[in-house]
Amino acid sequence: MAQVTFKEKPVTLMGNEVTVGSNAPDFTVLANDLSEVNFSDYKGKVRLISVVPSIDTGVCDQQTRKFNEEAANLGNIEILTISADLPFAQKRWCAAAGIDNVQVLSDHRDLDFGKKYGVAIEELRLLSRSIFVVDSSDTVVYAEYVSEVTNHPNYEAAIEAAKSAN
């Protein structure tokens, strides 16, 4: 399991680590209108999953904006940003930030995504910063568990993995 810290203190990640070459687990999260969204809804497409602890924080804001900007260059790649924030907060933040090229989804209800991808932080009920790229046949082709939750992920590596999988 990935060793992760939050503000330099170790945290416990619930679930199983997802590794490159494994089949991407299906999961259910909520859209900003409270409708259920299943990962399988995007079947047959390359998907980049950007995981942030809280959309309202500096690094999470920058990470989401970065992938929103990159979406135009990535063509037919679905970009999903997932956090444990309430859907209402996500909707408000997206409207204020002008986020319209990525799907921002909530794992608040039952941490289904967080537990299936091994990113749910037990002590905080937040998701640990991470990036996953899944190809059109549902194989994980890139997985990054950021070792310090307050740090940025490797944007370039994730973007290259998504482009290569397309």
Rank of each mutant, 00 (worst) to 15 (best):
A2W: 01
V4H: 02
T5C: 09
K7M: 12
K9A: 14
P10F: 11
P10I: 10
L13A: 09
M14F: 02
G15P: 05
G15V: 11
T19L: 11
S22P: 01
F27L: 09
N32T: 15
E36I: 05
V37D: 06
V37W: 03
N38L: 08
N38Q: 13
F39R: 08
K43G: 03
V46K: 04
L48P: 03
V51E: 04
P53L: 08
I55Y: 08
I55V: 15
D56E: 15
G58F: 11
Q63C: 06
Q63R: 05
R65H: 13
E69D: 15
E70Q: 14
A71K: 12
A72E: 13
N76M: 04
N76E: 14
I77E: 00
T81C: 15
A84D: 06
A84F: 06
Q90C: 05
A96C: 01
A96Q: 15
A97D: 12
G98A: 10
G98D: 09
G98L: 07
G98T: 09
I99D: 04
D100P: 02
D100F: 02
L105M: 07
L105I: 06
S106G: 08
H108E: 13
R109T: 08
D110V: 05
D110Y: 07
D110R: 08
F113P: 05
G114M: 09
K116G: 04
K116W: 05
A120Q: 10
A120W: 08
E122I: 00
S128I: 08
S130Q: 03
F132N: 02
F132G: 01
V133Y: 00
V133A: 02
D135M: 07
V140C: 03
V141F: 01
Y142R: 01
T150Q: 13
T150L: 11
N151T: 05
P153S: 07
N154D: 15
A157K: 13
A158E: 05
A161K: 02
A162M: 05
K163E: 00
S164E: 11
N166L: 12
